[in-house]
Design a protein around this nucleic acid. Structure first.
Lengths: 192, 192
DNA sequence: AGTAGATGAATGGTTATTCATTAACTTCAT
DNA sequence: ATGAAGTTAATGAATAACCATTCATCTACT
């Protein structure tokens, strides 16, 4: 049932998906949904939490240093994040950031905490790359946002049918990001 | 009045903004809005068209070669797009892509045509940079998407209060993009 | 006299949610 | 094994709110 709701939210958006839509797709009447969820918001919360977990879980271990070269750590983040992003694709009416407003303050906080965890991890990896001199000093926050932005927005424009594959795309973003990192602040870098 | 509606759409989102909201902010009753617009959708259309015009107009002349070095052309696009993106900021509930679904097919086509114009311009500039050997061969479409994505998503996370200024940010994105372009495909590049 | 701007009231639709009720299935003591 | 009791899943009907839109009417200005 969560599965059904998630699909509908992604296809039509949260506000445009009615309880009647969900129940019909599930094969029951609207009233029955309330035997499983207390209200519509709880369904949204579960959908968002699930998605965020899927993004974070495969890269959680990068919180601690693991010996892998920072560029490889970065590649892992990009690959994993991109694959989750493009897995429940179809269309992308439910945009993560927008949907947050339909959550209660408590639930919103929980989701934002997860997003913060993601931010923390990618920033740690970028910082490690600076320390190991894989790339020069750079604004870690901004760099993190840039990389996440490139990945997140694939949901809007990516269509698997024609053109590049997910793996190609992952590779492209990785190289683009890596060289974006390497270039920025080059002057200071050369001085070392 | 368009001005009012635009602000509300960005603050609360299109679906969550009622005609009553708009009329109250304007200082009249809901019925009166229909003396200026045929329906709610027309308001949305005007808001989106206006925004798209503001993005395209300052870079329209880059459709034709203008003698400026391609990196400078790119800087212009980024600067200009970023400034429009962050001008009606506050919050960002109305996401461009999502709102398209609330448009009639004809109006949606008009907006998408404008988006295509933007894509065409940025791709032309990137292609020029390849021809002038400012950066190596690269997938022009993907590169264009990456750059636009970095800019578009600033709306979500950027807050002017603390941290970088819009100009700093513009500079950062420009450098990040420029080096992203330069790096990708380096092997083939070095061979020239 | 005519027109543009404004309004109150009504309409028709949609929506999330509640509630009392029913049906099916489980548990468990006898 | 049987029947009672309880639990879970499901439902139809009703509620209350909200919302875009229409229309006949009214006002003020040209």
């Amino acid at each position: 049932m969560l599965h059904i709701a998630r699909r509908l939210f992604w296809e039509k958006g949260y506000l445009s998906t009615s309880m009647a839509d969900i129940s019909k797709a599930y094969g029951c009447r609207p009233a029955n949904i309330y035997n499983f969820f207390s209200d519509k918001e709880e369904i949204l919360f579960e959908v968002l939490r699930e998605e965020m977990d899927q993004i974070i879980h495969p890269i959680q271990h990068l919180e601690e240093e693991n010996g892998l070269p920072p560029p490889e750590q970065l590649r892992l983040i990009i690959e994993s994040h991109l694959k989750v992003t493009l897995s429940y694709r179809r269309s992308a009416k439910l945009l993560f950031d927008v949907a947050l407003d339909n959550l209660s303050p408590e639930n919103r906080k929980k989701i934002i905490d997860l997003r913060d965890t993601y931010d923390r991890i990618i920033r740690k990896v970028i910082r490690r790359g600076i320390e190991s001199q894989d790339w020069p000093e750079i604004d870690v926050k901004l760099a993190g946002f840039m990389i996440a932005s490139m990945i997140t927005r694939t949901r809007i424009w990516f269509h698997p049918k024609k053109g590049v594959s997910v793996n190609d795309l992952s590779d492209f973003i990785f190289k683009f990001a890596l060289n974006g990192l390497k270039g920025e602040g080059r002057k200071r870098w050369r001085r070392l």
